[in-house]
Nucleic acid binder design. Structure first.
Lengths: 236, 236
DNA sequence: CAAAAAGCGAGAGCACTGCTCACATTTCTC
DNA sequence: GAGAAATGTGAGCAGTGCTCTCGCTTTTTG
């Protein structure tokens, strides 16, 4: 089955990815050098092209890999909440897992959510892994919807079509208000992480984690909404 | 006074900046090529270094310039609100000016708020222009505070020191709750713009403008808070 | 089992990049 | 007008992504 060549190929491919991730962490996406990887590998530069047809292809592999590891981290974080009806805790854990992963892998986070590499168009196969962490968030919304949580926010007409398309696309029962609030919360969380990671909180806030917590709590409370017949969902 | 040389120098410098902005728009920050600029200018590549000591220095000039133009755009947008006590309108106009400027100058926005250029550390002189657009936002908060608007949000202990430092640094009277709510709103707005600009709303939302509006409205309502003695300003 | 095919690494080469340096020319200042 | 400062030239260094040809080795096929 696994011939000598086949095994060597996967090993070399993995090693290239490993070195590339290392470079990414040090230099960022712009500093990703195929030649440097080849050098570290003890190969001549052109040999790399047997494994990745281009720099962009290696970039795609790194992006898919990063999305996947982020997704796994968020899944793990959210899953660690035992009381599955404690939606606020699930929201907190999911978002904290996002931030933690971002802080632990800043260059990879930047690769995913920072400035797009100019001239690079992410191929279709990045989409499934890219949705992985969002599925966790959407599932919380869906479960809340099933548990009877409701929101009363004005939904602008202009976005209604998008929301109903999203609903079927995501396969959720969450209503327009829930979806909209979820999108807004997502925005806020991504914004807070990016501001911190990209250095815009320097000279603004010494404890970015505390600001992040506040953002998460504020939107968490909004997301909780009201469950009809139950007391309003209090708590900080 | 203005000798031939002096005049030629500012003209050439301006021309370099103009060409650089053009390149930025097409290729992004990573594709900024001093040699290409020199070529377009009809000079030999090394001559550029008489005007900018390095690529980073040119980048700094571009960043300062971009911050300044963004600041002016936000100022203009916010100033166009005639009823200065209509704080919601001021918030709407300021944030819409931000988004509009981002959409009109995506590469420059990315330069300011996207992935930091690796190995590049923005020097101190970028700070004043960087604060320009934020001053507009803070001023709205300050004016609201003076008009008696209050918020009742839990302020985590961990961020209190930051908030009081911020208050004196910004020279505002806004309370902890107001500042915190302002920071969160800022986060959300930045997040929404970046998600849209960096392509993360593709296949999610067809009308990113409508989502942005919803985010602005949601936080706008929170920012409004309550003015004691006045009717409560609705709720989200 | 031998021949053909496919995979892989080496090395040279192209066009590009940021940046440095010695040199000539032009402009400003004393 | 002489010296100093500013400016442009052109060669050169080290680096990049990528292509192509050439051998060698492993795998597949008849």
């Amino acid at each position: 089955m696994t011939g000598v060549r086949e095994r060597a190929r996967v090993a070399t491919t993995a090693e290239i990815m490993r070195l590339a991730r290392g470079q990414l962490a040090v230099e960022g996406a712009a500093g990703l050098s195929l030649r440097a990887i080849a050098r570290d590998l003890g190969m001549v530069s052109s040999a790399i092209y047997r494994y990745f047809a281009s720099r962009d292809e290696l970039l795609t592999a790194l992006i898919i890999d990063a999305y996947d590891r982020l997704g796994a981290a968020v899944e793990d974080g959210e899953r660690s909440v035992r009381r599955r009806t404690d939606f606020l805790a699930r929201w907190r854990h999911a978002t904290h897992a996002m931030r933690q992963w971002a802080m632990d892998h800043p260059a990879e986070w930047a690769l995913l959510f920072g400035t797009p590499v100019p001239g690079y168009a992410a191929p279709q196969d990045t989409i499934p892994p890219a949705t992985r962490y969002t599925v966790v968030l959407v599932t919380i919304l869906t479960d809340m919807s099933a548990a009877g949580h409701r929101h009363d926010v004005a939904v602008p007409k202009a976005i209604r079509a998008d929301l109903s398309r999203l609903r079927s696309q995501l396969g959720t029962d969450a209503g327009d208000t829930s979806l909209l609030i979820g999108l807004a919360a997502w925005s806020a969380v991504m914004g807070a992480i990016n501001l911190e990671l990209f250095g815009h909180l320097h000279n603004v806030v010494e404890e970015p984690g505390a600001l992040f917590d506040a953002v998460v709590e504020q939107h968490g409370r909004t997301i909780m909404g009201t469950v009809p017949g139950g007391e309003p969902s209090e708590r900080a």
